[in-house]
Design a binder for these strands. Sequence first.
DNA 1: GGAATTTACTGGCATATACCACTATATATG
DNA 2: CATATATAGTGGTATATGCCAGTAAATTCC
Lengths: 163, 163
Amino acid sequence: MTDDDDKLNKQGQNQDGIWLHCSNSAVRRASRHLGQLYEDAMGDSHLKGTQFSLISQIARSNEPTLKTLADAVVMDLSALGHTLKPLIRDGLVELVPDAQDRRAKRVRLTEAGTAIQRDLTARWQVAQDRFDKAFGKERSQELRRTLAFISSDEFARAFNGND
Amino acid sequence: MTDDDDKLNKQGQNQDGIWLHCSNSAVRRASRHLGQLYEDAMGDSHLKGTQFSLISQIARSNEPTLKTLADAVVMDLSALGHTLKPLIRDGLVELVPDAQDRRAKRVRLTEAGTAIQRDLTARWQVAQDRFDKAFGKERSQELRRTLAFISSDEFARAFNGND
DNA sequence: GGAATTTACTGGCATATACCACTATATATG
DNA sequence: CATATATAGTGGTATATGCCAGTAAATTCC
C-alpha cells in the first residue's frame, strides 16, 4: 500500500475531494447516498423515496396549492408539476381547482394515495430508525434542523447578503 | 394572524413538514436550495453547478476510471456516464481507454475543460465564501465532514447494521 | 373601469440520476 | 486451458428537477 493509498479505499471514496470544500457538492453527494440507503431499506414499494416524501408532505398539508407546496418543499413550481405527473397518472394524487382563486389548483391525495402513504410510513420509519441509530438520534434531529435552516428564506437572505 | 399562521410564513415554508422528521427529505430539500443559491451566486456560466462539481473532481483526480469516479462522487456508474455526455459533447471531457484493462475507460479533462474549470473556480469560491459567511466557517467545514461521513461506506455499513 | 403588472400554472427542453439488461473483458477455478 | 464468475461500460427507460416562454386569472394603478 503506497502513501497515496493511505487516504483512499479501493473506490477512492475517502480521498480528498471537492465535497470536502464545496458545501453544495457535499449535500448533493449525501443526498445520493441517502436516497439509495432509504430506498433499499424501504424495500420494493412501487414508489420512489422522493415520491413517498412528496405524498407524505401532501398528507401533512391542508390541500395546499401547487405554489404553496412547491415553496414548502423548496422546489420549482414547474418541477413540482412534472414530478406530480406520475402520481396523478397512477391515481394517488389529484388536482382540484381552487374555489376562490381560479388560477390556483389544490393538491390532494386520493383514497388510494392516502392508503399507500399510510402503508409505506411503517417502512419509512424503519429506514429513519436505522438512520437515527447509525447517526445518533439527537444528532440526527439537530442535522435536520440545520438542513431546514439552510433550506429557509432566512438563510437565502443571509447568503445573498440582504440582512 | 391566526395561531396557525404563527408557524408558517406565507409560503408555508416553516410549517412542520416531513423534512423535520425524515433525514432523506431534509438533505434533498437542502440540496435543491443550495443548488439554486450557488447557481445564482456563480452567475451565467454555461455550466450547471453539478457539472462544475464534476469537472472539479475530475481535475482533482488522476485520470480516474469511470468506476472510480462514480464511487468517489457516490453516483451510479450509468448515471455518471449519462451525466458526462453533455460535457463530452461540448468538448470539456474525454474518455480514453485504459492501457492495462481494456474494459476500463479513464476520464480526463480536455484543455478547454481544464481552462473552464480554472475560470469558474473563482466564481465558485465566491459562492462558497458566501455560504461560509452565512453559516459560519467552522460550522461549514464541520457540516461538510458530517455529510462526507453520511456519504461513506462506513456509514452505509452502520445504517445496514453490518458492524 | 380599463390598462399594466403580478401571480399561478402548463408545456417544452435540457440536465440529473437510478435501475435493468446486455456486451466485452478480466479473473478465478477445476 | 476451458469454463464459471466478477467487473467495467453502454443503452434504454423512468423519474427528478430547473429554466423559459406562453396563457389565464387576479390585483394594482391611473
